[in-house]
Amino acid sequence: MAKKLITLTVNGEKHEVAVEDRDLLIHVLREKLRLTGAHIGCETTHCGACTVDIDGKSIKSCTRFAVQHDGASITTIEGMAHPDGALHALQEAFRQEHGLQCGFCTPGMIMRAHRLLQENPNPTEEEVRYGIAGNLCRCTGYQNIVKAILVAAEKLRQPEAAE
């Protein structure tokens, strides 16, 4: 099948990548760009493990064709830590609050939580739960994930933690 050359800016780095029309974005991110942070869980738009941030929206990258995002700016979990290697407040909070066990859902959880806190920096517990309804976790029972997001939200609201 003929390939098309598309441009994706991922974590600030511009990539030109040849894709087939039918290539899903998650496959291009993982197999062509070797960014394996975003996971393939269900591949049916349910689990949210493949969630990445695209032009200010949380997107399940298993349910988009890569060609739909020619020219897009994408952030994946690999782009969340600071350039000096220090973890993002969400990553730090997930670690401190035990917001993960097996870790499979974590990249999607953090990318979704990131967008949620951009839109609502001071969410209630209920708003967090509603906001991450598209991300499934089979280990934690969500309790510590919700706690981690609330802790990160509080930290991100402090002026000295400005990102």
Partner: peptide
Amino acid sequence: IADPQVRYC
């Protein structure tokens, strides 16, 4: 409808 990610699309 569905979940936040789906509602963006």
